[in-house]
Design a binder for these strands. Structure first.
Length: 108
DNA sequence: CGGCTGACGTAAC
DNA sequence: TGTTACGCCAGCC
């Protein structure tokens, strides 16, 4: 059952694609869901390649404190923030407000 | 081929 | 309570 999927990246993409509109998750949460709680870093790296895929809303993935650490990788510095604000999120100083309320976790 | 870096997170001191 | 070190995987020099 569920033999190992293709690549680690593909698994990350699959989880990110499941993030519902108006919700966000964290790198570590995804890594943990994949069974690699210490591979959060690799998840973030996967997002770097994921941002080329329109199916992967990488802007809905932030670090554990709701900080837009990867906004610099979105063409523009404000791109990530604007995308999140367009979904109804309130961001101050690159930090998602009410993060706990918009936090979404993979259906483990 | 070897070593460093990087969208993170946790543990240890 | 704040800082430092380590782990993880993949890409690049």
């Amino acid at each position: 059952m569920m033999e190992k999927q293709n690549d680690f990246f593909e698994r990350v993409y699959d989880v990110v694609r499941q993030i519902p509109f108006g919700k966000v998750t964290t790198y570590g949460r995804i890594a943990q869901y994949l069974g690699a709680p210490k591979s959060a870093r690799t998840v973030g790296y996967a997002m770097n390649a994921a941002h080329t895929k329109a199916d992967v809303p990488a802007h809905r993935v932030v670090n554990r404190i709701g900080l837009l650490t990867g906004k610099h990788h979105f063409g523009g510095i404000n791109t990530m923030q604007q995308l999140l604000e367009a979904e109804g999120h309130l961001i101050i100083k690159d930090q998602i407000q009410n993060f706990n309320a918009v936090f979404w976790s993979p259906n483990a």
